[in-house]
Amino acid sequence: MSLLEQIGKLKEEALGELAEASGAKEIEAWRIRYLGKKSRLNDILRGLSNLLLDERKEVGAGANRLKAELEKSLSQKEQALSRKQIESAGEEYLDVSLPGRSLPVGRLHPVTQVIDEMSQIFISMGFQALEGPEVEWDYYNFEALNIPKEHPARDTMATLWVDYETDGGDRPMLLRTHTSPMQIRVMEKAQPPLRVVVPGKVYRYEATDATHIPMFFQIEGFAIDKNITMADLKGTLYEFSRRFFGRDRKVRFRCDYFPFVEPGVEMAIECAVCKGSGCRLCSNSGWIEILGAGMVHPKVLERVNIDPEVYSGFAFGMGIERIPMLRYGIDDIRLFYGSDLRFLRQF
């Protein structure tokens, strides 16, 4: 049998066998037999160099054609087989209720989340977020905010003092009791128009219990320009409440006193538990106090060389922890800073 005849026979044999083959194993065996290194076809191809030129051309072409044909058929066969497998896969059993390969999940602290959410609302109204020092001079925390020494308002903000003498004790240093010192720091450096929010830690000299801790967060905000009115204060803070607490939540503005604003304002939202009819959570008032605010006091503006006859503005300050406490029904403020994962993972 000539080599060409052998090639022809080989083709017949190989394609016939391939048609018969049914599993991946049989197909692999077929590939080794007909296309492998030790296959008859490979022998023929390797032996080409021993042939005369004419024959070499003829046989070579035939053998390579066959190789290509077999490879093509193999790939078709494999594709057909894989299609068949996918079609019959539905019959396989996979317990889909078994757990997946999990990736570790980390979360941001609920206070971080709330601060971000609040800041974002004010930023979208043209406010800029800034931060300030937590260790402050008495001047910024009290004096410049119209709370001189021996002012009774100091008693409502029990202060932690730093044991450090500056200028021979003439400049007392403290842990800021509110974020309001940043009103002064910002206005000292920049001229109106100003719209700023300042989130940050504040400190009080207080014994720890379910509603008091010595360190907590506040967010301060203020806007100064010509013709800023209390109507703007009400509108801006209502817009905040509408976005944060929802459009159906009623808001109440009442008169309150803070030495660095005049007139002074307190904003409360309707108690979510009793819908305003009075319950334990709101001490029967139907309202939950959310923030203190007011029109920036003319003396505060004068101190930073902003003319109160020309400019006016409003300021507000809001405790942060209270908000997630109301939102999630948390009854102990200490949980925020106790770092218990069983608590933190819930947010």
Binding site: D225, K226, I228, M295, P298, K299
Partner: peptide, 28 residues
């Protein structure tokens, strides 16, 4: 000061009498 009197007027008439407006001054 004058602002103290403004508060007196506002708190007796009632803060509810003050409308709500959005800031309309130029963006800083």
């Amino acid at each position: 000061i004058e602002a103290d009197l403004v508060e007196e007027v506002a708190r007796v008439i009632g803060y509810d009498a003050i409308p709500m407006t959005m800031l309309s001054s130029s963006l800083p």
